[in-house]
Structure formats: C-alpha cells, structure tokens
Design a binder for these strands. Structure first.
Lengths: 217, 217
DNA sequence: TTTGCCATCATACAGAGGTTTGGGTCACCT
DNA sequence: AGGTGACCCAAACCTCTGTATGATGGCAAA
C-alpha cells in the first residue's frame, strides 16, 4: 500500500500510458489512424473538430495531438495557437491533403513536430507521433520539477525570500543584514529556515534551485 | 586609448556589422539578393556554389546564410548538415524554385530559420534574414561566454578540477579531503586557487559557473 | 482571548571557511 | 645543475556560518 500511494502521488514517475489525440472531420481518417496507432499500443482519443478537443479533458499522461490543417471552424494553424494559449502545450503533428510550403513552414516555426502530406506512409506517422510523445514526456518532466520547486519557494515568507535572494547572490549574512536593515543573527535564522523549507542542506544546492527558479536580482 | 583597446578586445561587444552569405548558381539571383540586402545596410558575401562558401572565411560577426536548396554539387539540405559538422553553425534561410513540403519540413527540423519559395516577396526575405541574424547574434553571445568560461576552467590543474567538482557538489572541505585522500588544509589551498583562477569571490558564483560548464559528477 | 505564525534580537558556542607563513617532494625542462 | 610548477602538509589566526536557548512584539484567525 505504501508503494501504491507513493507511485500515485510522486510526480515525474510517468508510468501512465502515452496517448494520441486525433482531430479530423473525416470519420474514415479517424478510424484509420485509430487502428494504426493502436497497432503500436498507443491509446487514442478521437475528435471530429477542434471544439470537441477543447471541451474534452486530456489524460494526465505524455501524449500528442495529430491535427488536420483544414478543419471545420478554425484553421489548424490558428488552433495551434489557441492550444498554446490555453496551456495545452501538447506537441502537434500536422497532416494535410492540400497544404503548401508556407503553411508547413509556419507550422514548424510555431513548434509543430512534423507536417505530413496526405497520403503519408504509416511509418512516417508513427515516427512523428513517437517523437512527439517523447518530446512531451521531457516537457512534462521539466514542468513537473519546476512546479515542485515553485511549490517549495511559495512556502517561504516574504522575508525569507528576500534573504534567499541575497544569499544566492553571494552576499554574506552581515551584508544581507545591512541591506535589509536587520541584525546578522536574524538573517542567520531566516537563512536556516530557507534551507529547511527549500529542502537543501548546502548552499550549492540552494544556488542551483534558485537558478532553476530564475532568481537573479 | 584604454577605451579603444578595451572595446576591441572585450568579447561579446558585437559591434561588427552583420553580414549575409548568399549561395546560388544563378548570377542574376545573386545580384538581385545582393541589391536587396544592401538596401537595408547588410554586408553581403556572394557564392556560386557550396564549395566556394566552404573555402571562404566568413567574417567574425553576426550573420547568416541564404541558400538555394538545389545547388551544383550537393543538396542544400545535405550542405546544411555539412556546415553544422564543420562548426559553421550560421542560421540558414532556404529558398527554392521547386521545393515540396517534405523538403521544407526537413529543413526546418534541421534548424533552418525559414524556407522561402521562389518567387518570394522581398519583405519576406528581409524578415527572414533579420531574424536569422538576430538568432546568430544570441548564439554567438552564448558561445562566446561559454568559451571564456572554458578557458578559465582550463587554467586549473587536475587536482584543482577534482576539488572544484566536489566543492560545487556541496561537499565540505573535510569530505573532499577524505575522498581525495588529502588533508583538509590542502583542499583549502586548492579551493582558494580554484576561486582565484575561476575569477569568482563567492561559492554561489562558482556554482553558477560550474553549472554553465556542465560539471555534475 | 487564546493560539499560532511571523518577525526580531541577544548570548554563547561549535564548526566550517579562508589566508598566511613556511616547509617539503617530485617531475620536467632548459 | 638549476629553475619551475604541481602537489602536499602544518600551525596560527581570523572570519563566517549554523544552531541552540530565550525573549519580545505584532497580527490575524479560531
């Protein structure tokens, strides 16, 4: 039971099965992709329109989105932008029957993983999807560890954050005390609290965490 | 005179005028691009083939390469790979008269800044080139500061590097001494040398430099 | 009001960091 | 043979860090 709980709550474990969300207005295409992706043991979510995908709740697992450029409602490229805005930053694989070079370049510039012309070879789609999922896996791992860090940082009081900022800048306790108008002993106490709350035992580790948090001034 | 010397030798200043290297086997295209690029005050280097560019010495300034995909000798895409191998990592803007989507996607995946179909609008080329030069500028700044760091690190002796590795890992002097089979006082001396040679005064700064150098074990 | 958290400071002590001074061995190069 | 530089160590001395112990006051939620 301990292991089970640990496995469920510990972030970054990523044992969940990856999935692929497919958006296309042609049911035949959806069916074909569903079959293809399942053949390599990938879970699928099928959508007939961008709106459906936005309404749905994607699994909390590494995954990607396969998208036709020409979709009912909005352009696939615009939809790409919408997804990013809403924080649904899943890697996207585009496909199209009537694409052109500027379209593909725009998609790639916006971060698309691949841009496949219909008809494409099955293997090309599988490669693209595999690559996209791997990208998402790393993305999620990075976001996850950043979130844990931010959570620790938020447990600090205002004073503790001020002290931490100056400490990781390399200032001595007495200097920090001078800047903040405190006595050196008070700074030491805050500093000790910072170390404890940030879960580090050495200044080196604190500096690295501060770097990851983007603490500069 | 002091200011002049300082300005010439300090890296990262990047006051040098940006340039654009253009490779195309059609003299008319070269001439047209030369004229276009000069109109926004960009220096140009014109080449009739990839081999010519490889033989030439590009200026030590931010710049980019404008390349036709179909070139005498090699494919523009293969040439892109060759340039990366030789450390000529300038951002590339592709242009083509007979391109297709897979080609453009491959180029973009390989890091191309843009991929323009001929005929393209002048403004599109200017935008692409401007963006490419900006990317190179940042690339060069990053490489430059990494090189300075590596240079400092290379002035360290083997022992000093070992000590530094353990120190930035957060170990105490006595622990480092135990691992390396030294006395604590010797570690202190090495540590002092490391700080001096790496040009830092605080452990925090040393940790940051070590991070930038990718020192982990 | 009581409780809890935040913040502040003092004294005292233990331990870690850092430099200086001075000394030694060894390998390599001129 | 002498010089250089890496490497090693010790004693002395100082500063800085870190952690108690104990105490005060403000402020907000229960």
């Amino acid at each position: 039971m301990i292991q089970q709980t640990s496995g469920q709550t510990r972030p970054g474990t990523e044992l969940a099965a990856p999935f692929v969300a497919v958006v296309d207005d042609d049911p035949a295409v959806l069916e074909a992709l569903d079959s293809l992706l399942r053949s390599i043991s990938l879970a699928t979510r099928l959508f007939g329109s961008p709106a459906e995908l936005l309404a749905a709740q994607l699994p909390d697992a590494p995954g990607c989105i396969v998208l036709d450029v020409r979709l009912p409602g909005v352009s696939g490229l615009d939809f790409q932008g919408q997804l990013v805005e809403r924080g649904i930053g899943r890697p996207i694989v585009f496909m199209t029957g009537h694409g052109d070079i500027p379209m593909s370049v725009r998609a790639m510039k916006a971060g698309a993983v691949d841009f496949l012309s219909k008809p494409f070879r099955d293997q090309d789609m599988l490669d693209a999807v595999t690559s996209a999922i791997e990208r998402d896996r790393q993305q999620r791992a990075a976001t996850s560890s950043r979130n844990e860090l931010a959570a620790e940082f938020e447990t600090l009081t205002t004073r503790e954050r001020e002290v931490m900022t100056h400490v990781v800048a390399g200032l001595m306790n007495k200097q920090v005390a001078g800047i903040l108008g405190l006595s050196e002993i008070t700074v030491k106490i805050h500093r000790g609290n910072v170390m404890r709350k940030m879960g580090v035992r050495t200044l080196a580790d604190l500096v690295r965490k501060a770097e990851a948090l983007g603490i500069k001034p």
